[in-house]
Write a protein that binds this DNA or RNA. Structure first.
Lengths: 115, 115
DNA sequence: CCGGTTCATCGATGTCCGTCAATATCCACG
DNA sequence: CGTGGATATTGACGGACATCGATGAACCGG
């Protein structure tokens, strides 16, 4: 995303994903999930540690799922949500600046330290 | 951030940074800057390609700066904004899941392919 | 089919945020 | 210092969003 001059469309898509991360409750959900075996948990185990009402947690899970960061799976009465690590990896890659920039700014820092 | 169960405070800080990325105009600003030599440009060169009014661009630049993603520097009449690559790197690192998870889910995928 | 459990959706409410026009501030230059 | 150009701030407005209680939908055991 920082690799090439982005268009309006892709900018809006990416913004939607980052907006999904722009809430402390949702970040804590992701963090909690990443601490669970398999990176997954059912809603009933997520409400308590978040300190939010069940509808609110459900809402956050929906936002994260629609952003492509979680996947859901029904198991009997319970609904399990799991991290999508590939999408997280894609997001990290999108934040990587072009290599020329990294090199150029490294040289700049060296020059500033020298002066 | 995904490495350990995050607290309310750090979650709010990180959410603020992601919220700064959760707007297509701001993403296009970052993308444009990363295409400029040195990863920097003055405001007068940013208004045109964005298609937004000057106050709006100024507002977005402020949000990104306060999120720690940009730094400003005055040069005569002009104000230059530059990407802070270290902060982008920190952000990418924060999105990295713990290695145990990566390994566990890799095994899971292999099992699913086998069945 | 029924009562109970788990989760999603709906409707309402208060707050936050993107946007712009108008205005203020800062700076260079004469 | 006064003028002009570049950028920041303010005030206002409309839309988006987080939150919750109440309610609905899916599922399971008897």
């Amino acid at each position: 995303m920082l690799e090439d001059r982005i268009g309006r469309r892709r900018a809006e898509e990416s913004a939607r994903i980052f907006r999904a991360l722009g809430d402390s409750g949702r970040l804590r959900l992701l963090s909690f999930l990443s601490g669970q075996p398999g990176g997954e948990a059912c809603v009933c185990n997520l409400t308590r540690p978040l300190g939010l009402s069940q509808p609110t947690v459900s809402h956050h899970l929906r936002v994260l799922t629609e952003a492509g960061l979680l996947e859901r799976e029904r198991r009997g009465t319970w609904m399990y949500y799991r991290l999508r690590l590939e999408r997280l990896a894609e997001l990290r890659a999108a934040l990587a600046p072009p290599p020329r920039l990294t090199l150029a700014l490294r040289r700049r820092s060296a020059r500033e330290r020298a002066s």
